[in-house]
Design a protein around this nucleic acid. Structure first.
Lengths: 195, 195
DNA sequence: CGGTCTCTTGACGGAGTTCAAAGCTAGTGG
DNA sequence: CCACTAGCTTTGAACTCCGTCAAGAGACCG
């Protein structure tokens, strides 16, 4: 169970992490299970923990005044979940995060992560690289969301995240892409007919 | 000139930075001037340097097949510029970055920044916090771009970045918001009439 | 078998785009 | 000090993409 986190850190930190350093890292995380549909975080709460997903699938979304849901993030095994803003600032979150499948997580709190960043350079390194990737992915998504039409966005999504396509239903993916389920359905029809 | 960077790091790193540590930091940066309209980075190039803006204003944008420009970032004094993706991966950039006003920058290359992160904890700390803020801001922007209409986006922008509103013309801001200059003009008219 | 979740499809409406023309403003050179 | 230009903003009219609403059809599960 912890091996998964070990492998993960090794695959991202250039130097890798020693067994003894990993013993330290290990001690900072706690284990948690979530049932399908169970909340990890609800709007208005402060996000106390960041989670590393061992297995399962989760979604992060906001709800507007009319009750419409907007998915901002989809995550599966070996991804992190949590609301960065609430986590770092301790402000109430505007997002909901829930399990889309039964999910197993490793949790770490904000004060503990700050401590760990000091104590373990390999973890700090991995963490820095994750932040970088996160920023890059966000800008990319923003760019396509501004510059590309719905069809291009969908195709880009499918080719970038084939794993996610298999794990979430269409209406969730539609919301992630910023279109309605109806529009996505029509886009796919066109695509299927043209071949 | 360097004091500005010193103040900047002090304002973000919780512990601050010592004068002697800052001497190290200083030695890693070089100085550069750009004229209005001059490129900092052009599509297809690799982004060799990240820049800290001492004075001036810059914009980052992509151009689609039809020649339409999409602004993805606007930056002024005390912000960083550069294409993170190209910078970290050494792939050719899909973005253009140019000066909107005469601009002064402090530059640092990728290998040098990695070295500096090792050598100076206060710099690493500031850098981590910047990455965090960056991620948070990106997600926020993405959220509003998906969930809010053009008018809300504009109002949110004006209240979040009053400085940018003063420094860039409307058609640039429109592009940043993901609408055309025409639409933004109409939005503002409505807003002015309703009071 | 009945309920819940999901996807599809059509008709209509609305937010935003496109295109083109005109007005505005500031800077430049005569 | 005026005339001219270049960049910016405004405005109207036609159009387009996508959202909304509503209905129906599968698929899955208890």
């Amino acid at each position: 169970m912890m091996e998964q986190l070990f492998d993960y850190i090794n695959s991202y930190s250039p130097g890798g992490i020693s067994k003894s350093d990993f013993e330290i890292v290990k001690s900072y995380f706690t284990h948690k299970r979530l049932r399908k549909r169970q909340y990890f975080l609800q709007e208005g709460e402060i996000c106390k923990y960041f989670g590393f997903i061992l297995s399962g699938a989760m979604r992060q979304y906001t709800v507007d005044d009319k009750g419409k849901e907007y998915v901002v993030q989809l995550s599966i095994e070996n991804w992190w979940v949590g609301d960065r803003e609430s986590y770092t600032t301790s402000n109430p979150s505007i997002y909901n995060i829930d399990a889309w499948e039964d999910t197993e997580l490793l949790l770490i709190s904000r004060p503990r992560v700050l401590e760990l960043l000091q104590r373990c350079p390999a973890f700090a390194e991995t963490s820095r690289i994750m932040d970088e990737r996160n920023s890059i992915a966000s800008l990319k998504r923003l760019t396509t969301s501004i510059s590309a039409g719905a069809e291009k966005r969908y195709l880009a999504f499918v080719s970038s995240y084939p794993d996610l396509v298999k794990r979430f239903p269409q209406h969730i993916i539609a919301s992630y892409l910023g279109v309605t389920k109806d529009t996505l359905s029509r886009i796919r029809r066109q695509f299927l007919n043209n071949e």
